[in-house]
Write a protein that binds this DNA or RNA. Structure first.
Length: 573
DNA sequence: GCCGTTTTCGGCCCGACTGTTTTCAGTCG
């Protein structure tokens, strides 16, 4: 039972209770608990089984929810949830995904109009039944019909790299308008969250209407969903939705804070404001009617006796405690990265030669790389057996003699086989400068078995690092069911490093577990896993993820100079 | 349902926009 699954059940329970019209604060309690669980690096199952008392220490978990967690862990479900699911069909809950339709309307449709399925809903809208109801109308009917069309893609989160590319392009184009004074991205995109639900853009301008017109006519924009005096919502051709907000200059900082979030971070800021007799909203920090601050984020934080907190860590996880003690981490930056230790060449499934990859990395300013092609188990990628690998390493030595200013390590991305052994024998691995051990197959094995595979690899003295630990593909495939606590503890004990794979689909390990790895003193390496020269450019996304985990230069081993890194490797063996 | 240096009850963040309304509820972020 993974933390995410327990969280999902609480979310589902909250949705169902909301349709039933339950106390909104009770719903919030369930949703807060779900959030606590998804942000928890340790296994909730282990805690519930071994130290159930510790559940009460978790924020937002009280007696009742602790008991419910224990029940879910033991029985895989919750009687209360099952009962509610009997009462309210799954299709009725799905109606919540129609934008503009919320719990109140769903409850009415279900109990007053006996609409039990999406087909019922479509029929009722088409027959004009819905438009006749009190509180509904012709427009609502249209919203429902349009919403049913989009339902399959609604709620889909987009990977950061895809979202940010669109956001950047629109911001760049709007910024050319004379009437735009300041412009910034906001929302989860600015926080560099691995996936983004929608985009937010904040503008100060003398001519809000001109800015909104420009957005409306932008080539990436498909349609306008809402438009008021200061706020516009559009849908892009990609399906992603974008909010534009126009605020006065004196409010820009407060608005930037507000729209960057996270919601949980903002709630703490507002409570903090209240404690000081102030009120914080998107227009500024106010004492009664008087604007105290709001022009810049720094100013607002300062009024609340806090240093400026970087957007990536505004999640109400550790940032307030650190800020209070004046111990905010100096987050790692792309410019500090000096090596890239996971990449492929034409020897397996890459598209560039060893020399091309080395030259590409060098022109990106790197001092050292590792060439890490696949091992033989990955037949699809033409993985290397011992003979081909040794020849490949010879080739690397040859290239090294042809190029200066960059160190090329002889590496291998070696599969951890389903039975827990390595895909290549120890004597071969012992000849490598750098061994990345990874899971590619058997990702669905039960927790005990797959965790054991990783433990075997971590304890292998020739393994330098574990690559893309969970094997997840964001939005496509969940990661393996791992016992993270055991894996990370073993890595810390054996001096095995952990990778943050920078590929936008992977970003693996994630921010939560990277933070845990840091806490345990495990050196983290951010790698691109590039399969082409262009693939080397995704390093930035790995750095974003590291920043979200609160990692500093010191925590990331490939910020070291080649010499320092070489020494670290020698001593950790 | 959680929480507490205003503590075991009574709070729990704040505002814009829309549609269906005659002053506001619902939805959203």
């Amino acid at each position: 039972m993974q933390n995410a699954e327990v969280a999902r059940q609480f979310e589902e329970l909250a949705d169902l209770l909301e349709i039933q019209g339950a106390n909104p604060f009770r719903l919030r309690a369930y949703r807060n608990a779900a959030r606590t669980l998804s942000g928890l690096p340790d296994s909730i199952q282990d805690i519930a089984r071994n130290n159930p008392k510790e559940l009460l220490e978790l924020p937002g978990i009280g007696k009742d929810l602790a008991l419910k967690i224990e029940t879910i862990v033991e029985t895989a479900t919750l009687p209360q949830l099952e009962e509610l699911k009997e009462e309210i069909p799954a299709d009725v809950v799905r109606m919540l995904d129609i934008p503009g339709i919320g719990p109140k309307k769903v409850a009415f449709l279900f109990s007053e109009l006996s609409i039990h399925s999406l087909d019922d809903l479509k029929a009722a809208a088409e027959n004009g039944v819905i438009a006749e109801q009190k509180g509904f109308g012709k427009k609502t009917e249209q919203i429902i019909l349009a919403g049913l069309e989009h339902l399959s893609q609604a709620g889909n989160r987009v990977r950061l790299a895809d979202a940010k590319a669109q956001s950047d392009e629109i911001i760049h184009d709007l910024d050319t308008l004379k009437s735009v004074l300041q412009i910034s991205e906001a929302g989860s995109c600015r926080r560099r969250k691995e996936s983004v639900g929608d985009l937010d853009i904040l503008v100060t301008s003398s001519q809000p209407n001109e800015v909104m017109d420009a957005l409306e006519n932008h080539e990436l924009v498909k349609e306008v969903l809402a438009r008021g005096e200061t706020k516009q919502r559009v849908r892009l051709n990609s399906g992603l939705e974008m909010d534009l907000r126009v605020v006065p200059e004196e409010s820009y900082g407060a608005a930037l804070l507000y729209f960057t979030g996270s919601k949980e971070h903002n709630i703490v800021l507002r409570r903090r404001s209240q404690e000081r007799g102030l009120k914080l909203n998107e227009y500024g920090l106010f004492r009664e009617e008087e604007l105290v601050s709001g022009r810049t984020e720094e100013e607002v934080f300062q009024t609340l006796d806090l240093p400026w907190i970087p957007p990536e860590i505004r999640e109400n996880r550790m940032e307030f405690e650190a800020a209070e003690k004046n111990k905010l981490p100096e987050l790692v930056e792309l410019e500090q990265i000096r090596g890239d230790l996971h990449m492929h060449t034409t020897a397996t499934d890459g598209t560039a030669s060893i020399l091309e990859m080395a030259e590409g990395a060098k022109s990106n300013g790197l001092q050292y790389i590792a060439i890490t092609d696949h091992s033989k188990r990955v037949t699809m990628a033409n993985g290397l057996d011992a003979t081909r690998l040794r020849a490949h390493w010879k080739e690397i030595e040859k290239v090294q003699s042809q190029i200066s200013g960059i160190q090329i390590m002889k590496g291998i991305e070696c599969d951890i086989l389903e039975d827990g052994t390595m895909d290549l024998p120890d004597d071969v691995l012992s000849e490598a400068d750098w061994v990345i051990a990874v899971l590619h197959y058997g990702l669905k094995q039960p927790q005990k078995q797959i965790t054991q595979r990783l433990l075997n690899a971590i304890r292998n003295p020739h393994v330098s690092i574990i690559g893309h630990l969970s094997g997840r593909l964001i939005g496509k495939r969940p990661g393996a069911d791992l016992n993270y606590s055991e894996v990370l503890k073993a890595a810390a004990d054996h001096g095995t490093m952990m990778e943050i794979n920078a590929h936008p689909m992977r970003l693996d390990i994630d921010d939560i577990h990277a933070a845990k790895a840091k806490e345990l003193g495990i050196p983290i390496v951010i790698n691109t896993d590039a399969h082409s020269v262009r693939g080397l450019e995704v390093m930035q996304y790995g750095v974003y993820q590291a920043r979200r985990a609160g990692l500093t230069k010191k925590d990331v081993a490939n910020t070291k100079t080649w010499k320092q890194f070489y020494n670290l490797l020698k001593t950790s063996r």
